[in-house]
Design a protein around this nucleic acid. Structure first.
Length: 476
RNA sequence: GCGCCCUUAGCUCAAUCGGUAGAGCAGGACACUCUUAAUGUCAAGGUUGCAGGUUCGAUUCCUGCAGGGCGUACCA
């Protein structure tokens, strides 16, 4: 590819600097201040950052320099820097990293400005930055070259600060309550804990196929067997499925398990956690998400799956296939005809009910057939003690009372085996069943999609906006 | 996977009922020692995503491909 004229120009300056004996890629520079800490009465200042704007005035110039804490104006003046230094300054481009030294003053217009007495080039930038005023809008470049997005769009670093803060607060919240953070295998012999298509990889030395985990669940519950009563993990899971605004092949999940609890306890914990996160990060209990106002004030509504379908679609009998198919048709749902009652109901739920769940709602009591790791309800073995949490129409959390009866668990796994699914290894995890046979305390388990929670708290419409490097097809 | 839409200068955007692309920013030259989207003057910058087709002529119309966006399906 032909090199752009803009790059040629910058390389020319690079060479000229080298000829003057200036190293354009500097070393350690010790700062006395970050930009945000600089005040009018701050004396001598040494700070570093990236030049983001230049305004020349013949024998003087203003520049804006940016560090992680903010932006400030620099004033370069011929008779302060000296002729020689000023000539070097003229070879500075927007995008260069500079270490500067000087004293603070206010300009005539009142702007806090650093009068530069000396500076060092810390890194020469060879490529032009995106436009200063409109930023970088091309979504593809924003995702592929996130570093440019971070430089050009103020909102982007803000999102990732919030994301980091959120995960921090989750850890704090759980640690305070006696949960132990653990790390369990991402490469698993039998991918369990969900029913998604896994990624396959191969270990050479062991000469065995391994699967990237689709969920950490079965390993975390082995830890309950081992007596670690409260454990959690915040890390990636991988699902080899379609990519859209809510799904990325690798995504971050919180899974937490609490011995001796049940899904009711988890509802309390989940509600408390999310409310406290909103308060800490946004400073309030109301959030705006995609033109919707969401009120997080507890207590949150709890309604069974059946009741929700009754309320929004006026039917409640999962065995009435005829009626459900009619409703599905009315909603323009494409059905293959092979779906069972719940699958149709689930489709109807997703199309009709879920988008209406703006304020937080716990949907309770799912059919046993779709929840092979959940404990049945004592009064109705067709249903399990499970909830999903919806906020802003997004599925945010999934939790249940954990099934700890090994014989029942085996029957559920066997039921599951009957369902064909392409690309999913159909193997019963005997090791897990063995662990249950040693005895696992009754427990509550919770999974929260961290990416979606971040979407909610940053008002992002796509999961890609909250992932630094979302998955895209390779170029070309 | 399917459907619809998008792709023009480094960036942000114009334009063409088919007649050969224009501006701002950035970059270059000159001027300018308090500007802040600095200013003024001048010059430069493009295989209009890629490959074909129709046409005297395609950036525009058509087909295919690539990448992206949105929707839909899979993701219990």
């Amino acid at each position: 590819m032909e090199e752009s004229e803009l790059i040629v120009e910058r390389k020319k300056k690079l060479d000229e600097l080298k000829e003057l004996g200036i190293e354009p890629y500097g070393r350690r520079f010790t700062c006395t201040h970050k930009i945000a800490d600089i005040k009018e009465d701050t004396g001598k200042v040494k700070m570093a950052g990236r030049i983001v704007a230049l305004r020349g005035h013949g024998k003087a110039a203003f520049a804006d320099i940016k560090d992680i804490t903010g932006k400030m104006q620099l004033y370069f003046k011929n008779d302060i820097l000296g002729e020689e230094k000023y000539e070097i300054f003229k070879k500075i481009d927007i995008g260069d990293f500079l270490g500067v030294e000087g004293s603070v003053f206010r300009t005539r217009t009142g702007e806090l400005t650093l009068r530069v007495r000396d500076f060092k080039i810390l890194a020469k930038s060879l490529r032009p930055l995106p436009e200063k005023w409109h930023g970088l809008k091309d979504v593809e470049i924003r995702y592929r070259k996130r570093y440019l997005d971070l430089i050009a769009n103020e909102e982007t670093p803000r999102i990732f600060h919030k994301r980091s803060q959120l995960i921090d607060k989750i850890r704090e919240f759980l640690n305070e309550r006696g949960f132990l953070e653990v790390e369990t295998p991402m490469m698993q012999e039998i991918p369990g804990g969900a029913k998604a298509r896994p990624f396959i990889t191969h270990h050479q030395a062991l000469d065995t196929d391994l699967y990237l985990r689709i969920a950490p669940e079965l390993y975390l519950k082995r830890l309950l067997v081992g007596g670690l009563e409260r454990v959690y993990e915040i890390n990636r899971s991988f699902r080899n499925e379609g990519i859209d605004t809510l799904h990325n092949p690798e995504f971050t999940m919180l899974e937490a398990y609490s011995a001796y609890g049940d899904y009711q306890e988890m509802m309390e914990l989940t509600q408390e956690l999310i409310v406290s996160l909103a308060k800490e990060i946004l400073g309030k209990e109301e959030i705006n998400y995609q033109e919707q106002k969401i009120d997080l004030k507890p207590p949150w509504q709890r309604i069974s799956l059946k009741e929700s379908l009754k309320e929004y679609c006026s039917f409640e009998d999962f065995s009435d296939l005829k009626k459900m198919k009619k409703i599905a048709k009315g909603l323009n749902l494409e059905l293959s005809g092979k779906e069972n009652g719940f699958e149709i109901a689930d489709n109807i739920f997703k199309k009709r009910v879920q988008p209406a769940l703006i304020n937080p709602v716990f949907i309770l009591d799912y059919p046993r057939s779709t929840s092979p790791l959940a404990k049945s309800k004592p009064d109705n073995t067709k249903l399990v003690e499970r909830f999903e949490l919806f906020i802003g129409g997004l599925e945010i959390a999934n939790a249940y009372s954990e099934l700890n009866d090994p014989a029942e668990q085996r029957r559920r796994f066997e039921e599951e085996l009957k369902e064909e699914r392409e690309g999913v290894k159909k193997t019963i995890d005997e090791d897990y069943l063995e662990a249950l046979e040693y005895g696992m305390p009754p427990a509550a388990g919770l999974g929260i999609g961290i990416d979606r929670l971040v979407m909610l708290l940053t008002n992002s419409s796509s999961i890609r906006e909250v992932l630094l490097f979302p998955q895209l097809k390779p170029e070309q």
